[in-house]
Design a protein around this nucleic acid. Structure first.
Length: 551
RNA sequence: GUGCCCGUAGCUCAGUUGGAUAGAGCGUGGGUCUCCGGAACCCAAGGUCGGGGGUUCAAGUCCCCCCGGGCACGCCA
């Protein structure tokens, strides 16, 4: 709908004022009584033409109005109001195309990769990962719907010191179970080990599976073995939890495998050849400070092992080689300081600046009994994502994680969501969908009809209610919102429109009976409801929440 | 200490290429039902947009300072 006005406005600007590329806005006015859409173009124009905005608005509005919309000047703004005819024409298009009405080919087959979650396989997923999973999945669905060719990827950090510590922690708990003392191990564990209860669970399984055999292993060998075992187990757990919440990945890339395939070595060699490295104190450094980072970073430690950073450069270089047109990474906000060095490395390798986009997902703070529940892998107690999902339901968790921009922290009061499940906004939207479906069920039962889109389109004209027209408009505008959501990679915008559509619908429903004597009017109202159904379903599908037939 | 992010109604949050009288949900108070799903609807109260200065025709939005909260500053990942 915005496009309609923009087109007309551009033509006028070009022909009458010979101006192009002006950075004006077309958006819904704060006060809905003023019109459906409004533009501030006259304020910007007045600088160029040295005429007051109000005068410009007057003269432009006269030329803009047509059969599709009325343009009215007011204090320098131009307000637009769509004609009933135009709204209904748009609405018939919506009914005809169904969900396809909302999707357009913005991506044109561009190949994108979205990397998200990528939680370390040394512990279960926590809420922050869940938020990343929900946002990443919604982003994937959104991009895919708009014509991008998208691959979802999970990078498994199954290498390095953390895996060693993980194995060590398991071994410590296993020894504990057998009553075996190892002072050195104990000290190391207390200093750096993972203290979570899940380690104890793993240790029990190890005891049951390997038995006394473990005690016979050399300590270092045991740590390595148990680290591997633990990673495998945690990965299974992570996959299961993600599957439980309906999040899938196309590819799981193991950091370890990058090392084994020599990709890390290759990329280090590449940087060396370009002269962006040097050796100091036995370690190999990358000159990241030449590329916008505040200091240089180690690629290969003095003991000869490559760092996580080196592996990550290789991973991204490998992504680039695979031919992606762009890559979107979702990172926890605690990785903010890591971005300059990775960007720097990619720049050094000649990869275009805007190829990698990083979206930050801020942490989720969990509250219970008015107190924050701390989540830490190192210090022990925390609520896992799985527990939360089982407690409040997948749909509610997904919805709530998307009610806020992902790059700002989110407070999640578990008591509130648990107690007031029925008050949760997700049910409000789902209820609207179920209600619409209920009406169609009832119509079939009472009148034995199941109207197809041809007859509904035909009767759209008979829907005369003012509130219904507002609802139609909102459903058409939803298309503009989805477009904005894709272009700004902001899936949370969808949620707010869903709530508004649901609200307008519930309002309409409470004031207008559908099954009335006048069969034309009934069909007209059913056509409106069909549009609501389509819009809600599209939105809910995009955020991965069920659109239930009944509740 | 340095850098970055955040501070909007009692609570959780929208509003971010600067636009009109700052919005929603929850909570609170009042009301709506002979009726297709009351998990609903309507109305109301509730705001120095952390504070101060500046830029602008126009600032929640941009700039500076201050206050408060968070995160990052490893040869961890």
């Amino acid at each position: 709908m915005k496009g309609l006005i923009k087109e007309k406005l551009e033509t006028l600007l070009r022909e009458k004022y010979s101006l192009e590329g002006l950075n004006y806005t077309i958006e819904e006015p704060k006060d809905r009584h003023l019109g459906d859409l409004a533009t501030n173009v006259c304020f910007l124009l007045s600088k160029h033409l040295k005429k007051p905005p109000s005068v410009l608005a007057e003269e432009m509005a006269k030329e803009l109005s047509n059969e599709d919309f009325q343009a009215e000047p007011l204090r320098g703004f131009i307000n637009f109001r769509f004609s009933e005819g135009r709204i209904k024409e748009g609405f018939r298009e919506l009914l005809n195309l169904a969900s396809n009405y909302y999707f357009e080919d913005i991506g044109k087959g561009k190949r994108l990769q979205v990397e998200f979650v990528s939680a370390n396989p040394t512990g279960p997923l926590h809420l922050g990962h869940g938020r990343g999973a929900v946002v990443g999945d919604a982003l994937y669905r959104l991009l895919k719907a708009f014509g991008y060719d998208v691959v979802r990827e999970y990078y498994i950090n199954d290498a390095g010191y953390q895996v060693y510590l993980f194995g060590l922690s398991i071994l410590y708990r296993v020894y504990e179970l057998f009553g075996k003392e190892d002072q050195e191990l104990k000290e190391k564990f207390e200093e750096e080990g993972y203290k979570g209860n899940y380690i104890k669970e793993l240790a029990k399984d190890v005891k049951a599976f390997f038995g006394e055999e473990v005690l016979g292993w050399d300590r270092e060998q045991a740590i390595e073995k148990l680290g591997e075992y633990g990673v495998k187990r945690m990965l299974e757990d992570i996959k299961e939890t993600l599957a439980f919440m309906g999040v899938e990945f196309d590819l799981w890339v193991s950091e370890k495998s990058l090392h084994q395939r020599g990709l890390v070595e290759n990329v280090i060699k590449l940087l060396e050849e370009k002269g962006y490295t040097y050796t100091q104190e036995g370690a190999l450094w990358f000159k990241s400070s030449n590329f916008g980072d505040d200091k240089d970073r180690v690629l290969v430690r003095s003991d000869g092992t490559p760092t996580y950073f080196a592996g990550d450069i290789a991973y991204h270089y490998y992504k680039y080689e695979r031919g992606f047109d762009g890559v979107i990474n979702l990172w926890g906000a605690d990785h903010w300081g890591y971005l300059p060095r990775l960007k720097g490395a990619l720049k050094a390798l000649g990869i275009p600046e805007d190829w990698l986009k990083v979206e930050f997902v801020q942490m989720v703070k969990l509250f219970s009994g008015g107190k924050e529940i701390r989540m830490s892998k190192r210090t022990g107690e925390f609520i896992t994502l799985r527990e939360l999902l089982e407690e409040v339901g997948v749909d509610a968790v997904r919805f709530i994680f998307l009610t806020k921009r992902s790059d700002t922290p989110l407070d999640f009061d578990i008591d509130l969501v648990k107690q007031n499940t029925a008050e949760n906004p997700v049910f409000y939207v789902q209820y609207a969908h179920a209600r619409v479906r209920g009406v169609f069920r009832e119509v079939r039962q009472r009148f034995g009809i199941d109207p197809d889109k041809e007859s509904l389109t035909e009767y759209t004209e008979h829907m005369k209610d003012q509130q219904g027209l507002e609802l139609m408009k909102k459903l058409l505008f939803f298309k503009d919102t989805l477009r904005d959501a894709v272009l700004s990679l902001s899936p949370h915008l969808i949620v707010y429109d869903l709530l508004e559509i649901a609200k307008l619908f519930h309002n309409y429903y409470n004031h207008h009976r559908v099954m009335v004597e006048d069969k034309s009017l009934m069909m007209g109202r059913l056509s409106l409801l069909k549009g609501v159904e389509i819009g809600l379903k599209v939105g809910l599908n995009l955020i991965g929440v069920n659109a239930p037939e009944r509740m």
